[in-house]
Amino acid sequence: MRHARNNELTDRRSAASDAKAALLTAYRAAKTAAEPSRSARQAERISLVEAREARRAERERLKHEEQTRIVTLAAQKQAAIEAAEGAEIEARNSAENARISRVVEDEAARKAERDRRYAARKSRQA
C-alpha cells in the first residue's frame, strides 16, 4: 500500500511538472507568434506618444503666446494710463499757470487803477 501511495504522489508530481512545461512551451509559442503584432502595437503606441507630445508642445506654444499677448496688452494699458496721467498733470499745471497769470494780471490792473486814481487826485490837488 505504501508503494501505491508513492506512485500516486510521483504521478501527481510528474503530471504537475509536465503541465508546467506545457504551459511554458505554450507561452513561448504564443510569444513568438505574437511578435509581429506586438511590434505593430509598440509602433502604434510610439506614434500615439509622439502625437501626444506634439499636442502638448502646441498647447504650451499657444499658452506662451497668450501670456505674451496678455503681457503686451498690460504694458499698453499701463502706457496709456501713464500717458493719461501725464496729460492730466500737464492740464492741471497749465490751468494753474493760467490762473496764476490771471491773478497777476488782475493785481497789475488793480495797481494801475490805483495809480491812475492817485495821479488824478494829485493832479486835482495841484
Rank of each mutant, 00 (worst) to 15 (best):
89 I>T: 03
48 L>Y: 01
85 E>Q: 10
73 L>M: 10
76 Q>R: 12
14 S>W: 04
82 E>K: 13
32 T>S: 05
48 L>T: 01
31 K>N: 02
115 D>V: 08
106 D>W: 03
84 A>R: 12
69 R>K: 06
120 A>F: 05
16 A>R: 07
44 E>N: 08
19 A>R: 13
105 E>R: 05
104 V>D: 01
54 A>P: 00
92 R>E: 14
19 A>G: 07
10 T>Q: 12
105 E>N: 09
16 A>S: 10
115 D>C: 06
58 E>S: 06
124 R>W: 01
116 R>H: 07
56 R>F: 03
50 E>M: 04
108 A>P: 00
26 A>S: 14
92 R>A: 15
121 R>T: 13
101 S>M: 08
39 S>N: 07
51 A>V: 00
44 E>M: 04
66 E>T: 07
81 I>F: 13
47 S>R: 15
59 R>Y: 08
45 R>C: 09
40 A>P: 00
57 A>N: 07
91 A>E: 05
50 E>T: 09
61 R>T: 12
55 R>E: 14
44 E>K: 13
18 D>H: 09
60 E>Y: 05
32 T>V: 09
119 A>H: 08
73 L>W: 01
37 S>I: 12
9 L>V: 12
54 A>H: 02
108 A>K: 11
49 V>C: 10
122 K>T: 15
66 E>I: 10
97 N>V: 06
111 K>Y: 03
40 A>D: 14
36 P>N: 05
49 V>T: 12
13 R>H: 08
14 S>L: 14
76 Q>F: 02
57 A>Y: 01
70 I>Y: 00
59 R>D: 10
98 A>N: 05
61 R>V: 04
76 Q>P: 01
39 S>E: 15
93 N>H: 08
23 L>I: 09
53 E>F: 02
13 R>Q: 06
21 A>I: 11
43 A>E: 07
34 A>F: 00
41 R>S: 13
77 K>R: 15
47 S>V: 10
4 A>N: 07
66 E>Y: 05
16 A>G: 09
36 P>M: 02
45 R>S: 11
65 E>R: 10
40 A>W: 03
67 Q>N: 15
11 D>C: 03
86 G>R: 11
126 A>P: 04
25 T>M: 03
126 A>Y: 08
65 E>N: 11
12 R>A: 14
55 R>S: 11
71 V>Y: 07
28 R>P: 00
31 K>G: 03
10 T>I: 04
8 E>H: 14
72 T>N: 08
30 A>L: 10
95 A>T: 02
66 E>F: 09
78 Q>T: 09
42 Q>H: 08
11 D>V: 02
7 N>C: 06
88 E>P: 01
29 A>H: 12
46 I>K: 13
3 H>Y: 02
